[in-house]
Amino acid sequence: MKLLDTLSSIRLFYTCASLLLVGCVLGGVIPQNAPPEKYLEMFGHVFGGAVMRFGLADVFRSYWFMGLLAFSALNLLACSIRRWKSVKVRPGVFIAHVAVLFIFAGGIVRGGFSQHGFLPLEAGTSSETFTLNNGRTAPLPFSIHLRDFSIDYWQPELHRLHVQRISDGLHESQDVALDGAVKFNPIGITVKAVKFFPNFIMGDDGPASRDEARENPALELLVNEGGVERRQFVFANFPDFHQTPQNASSRIFYEYVPGRVKQFNSRLAIFENGKEVMEKTIHVNNPMTYKGFRFFQAGFDPKNIRFSSLQVSKDPSVPLIYLGFGLLLVGLAWAFLKRPGRV
């Protein structure tokens, strides 16, 4: 009984809550899970070393923080047992405290039984495993196949050409479509975009693109000036490297305008024993669930837009946590809003 008194004391609550507050502030201010050299660079040798030694580089998974959470839960449990009769007098307060206990319990279930990881898939390929956040590989009880990956845009990427007449500085700008030609009437030239190089390099066989990443965008142009045609490369990142011939009457500058992504979509299929059992197109905020595993659209690889980046999650704590959330809202509303009246 004496132990219960100690554990349920309000003084212990203030101690635990204040220490939790301090722990969260430390974890909120100090960058978490950064490489050791970053802490040495940020805080110097002495304090940077202390950050790593005292678990401040990963506060929320450290033993001392877990211990603090466990102690807070014990305090709350003891309080709820000690004051269970208050359920009749102040039901809202009692329910709110029990709700937080459910959330703590959900946290324990999550820590012990949940799986969170990621799965990069290329269109047309399948996988029966995924990589956990700790780097290990986990099996899936089925096979997941990426049929197709697509990106929708609010506004697609644009290739904008700025042409300037050398003699008087007259300037005109137009967007050019790939394989399309645009006429710059006042200046008197026609420009056709022949090929787009998202990440331009000079390969063994001439100009090429390293990958799909828009890191060094370049255009190969066919320029017709007074009936004379010439080929020319223009580079968005290097406007002065333009290969304009000495006798040309105008200069061309290339501006690459990135597209605004609206949504990215993965068409997924689940196979079990060689048979397709499910197909769904997922996008951000619209996952697919099968046998407790959920697949979320997380992103894509800008270097290879056939790759879809999926997040995988299996978390049995969710019902417990949501129960805690619901009870907490009801309990607090009951506790605070039960007596309407004058302020």
């Binding site: 969170h116 996952p287 979320f296 978390d315 949501y322 809202l329 607090l332 605070f336 809003l337």
Partner: peptide, 24 residues
């Protein structure tokens, strides 16, 4: 009290949204 209840609701709805968008 009103702010606390609304912040609680804000945190909870954020958590539910995060769970449906990112799986956590």
């Amino acid at each position: 009290a009103l702010g606390f209840w609304l912040l609680t609701l804000g945190i909870i709805t954020g958590a539910v949204w995060a769970n449906s968008a990112w799986g956590s």
